[in-house]
Design a binder for these strands. Structure first.
Lengths: 209, 209
DNA sequence: TGCTTCGGTGAACGACTGTGCACTATCAGG
DNA sequence: CCTGATAGTGCACAGTCGTTCACCGAAGCA
């Protein structure tokens, strides 16, 4: 025997997650049927229930998994910030890392981008919550940057929200234009310009007392 | 007789559009069935075909209709800009108009926000195209603002994209928090702050030669 | 007035949906 | 080694789905 029982179960679970991720590439979770997933995995429909209570539960598992990818990206971005010299370097490396991760975890980013707006309510809620956490983290990062010493925490959150929104939009645009390296290069350059514009504005900003 | 034949037909068509819009409030077009719509309207499923070739065609019609609402908003924004005094006034009035229109045309904005990411490919494409047109228009508006005389057209587009992205995100957030006036007020204030930050950055910006 | 056009009807089809239940085969632990 | 747990099977059920077809009745034009 080469596999223990829990290993086999985990393998099937993974196969289900992968199948769902694959089927979600050009549709949404709400238009996904249990039977499609089962057929893709190569199991009988009822066996699905051995692993997930419903498609919605599957979706929540995919949210968790996808945000592992996203957080890995944020870790890389932070490491880049530590190594980089000035603002320009931070912007350049951060966008490069974004582009790279979107490529490597295309399915996860696509899933988040789509289900954020279209998934079952609980999935939407979960994604919204995770993104809010990311914004909060970014806000504390921004607080450490020179020039933001006197900012109110509200303003930090607002700036953080703007940056996250712009980067999410960039990721979506990259996903739409996958397999078009020229367009993608332009999108990355645009994202860098946007970040620079925002940071220039931020450096001039003074919070109201 | 109170109604001519074309009037009756148009009335049914409207009823179908309204029913679809209503059913799309908490689901997506791809999870919408022809029979649901027909039942909601009060006609037999096959009668649907007298008005639309498919659900997808219905979606494209809804895109057209929704962007009529959105363009009406942009017209109001431009009128506000003409009347307003300085940058601060423009920002304040623009965001107010956004909030107001999102309320008045809740279903249309919700539809765009959702199907933009989750709709059938042709619907996504149509929405993407319309938003791009809006960005283009905003770019020409920005070109008329004092301080952007020396900007490259690329930079104008990039700034326009950033602003549109931020405003779309604001509209989505308002839709999520509908019926919570306190949250909504905060969101509007955040949007104003973001616009001010961006404009401050833009005023300092100099395009590369 | 008579004929045509056409929005809407109703039955029928084959395919697909989620879910329940009884079953089997196999691995893990006593 | 035997026994209980359990991942996966197979069948069945009642719905819903999109689409077809022949048909109806009233509006509109001649």
């Amino acid at each position: 025997m080469t596999e223990t029982r829990v290993e086999r179960k985990e393998r099937t679970r993974r196969a289900i997650l992968d199948a769902a991720l694959h089927l979600c590439e050009d549709s949404s979770l709400v238009a996904l049927s249990l039977r499609q997933v089962a057929k893709e995995v190569g199991i009988v429909p009822t066996a699905f229930y051995r692993h997930f209570e419903s498609i919605e539960a599957l979706g929540l598992a995919l949210v968790d998994e996808s945000f592992v990818s996203l957080r890995a990206m944020l870790r890389d971005v932070r490491r880049g910030e530590g190594a980089a010299g000035g603002f320009a370097d931070i912007v350049d490396s951060s966008v490069s890392i974004l582009v790279e991760h979107v490529h490597q975890q295309r399915q996860h980013f696509r899933f988040i981008a789509r289900e954020r707006a279209a998934g079952p309510p609980s999935v939407r809620e979960a994604i919204r919550h995770e993104i809010e956490l990311c914004e909060r983290e970014l806000a504390t990062d921004l607080a450490r940057l020179p020039g933001t010493e006197e900012w109110s925490s509200d303003d930090l959150r607002v700036l953080s929200n703007l940056i996250v929104t712009a980067m999410v939009a960039t990721a979506e645009a990259i996903l739409i234009n996958a397999r078009r390296p020229d367009v993608e290069k332009q999108l990355a350059e645009n994202a860098r310009t946007q970040l620079r514009m925002v940071l220039i504005g931020a450096l001039q900003w003074r919070s109201k007392p």
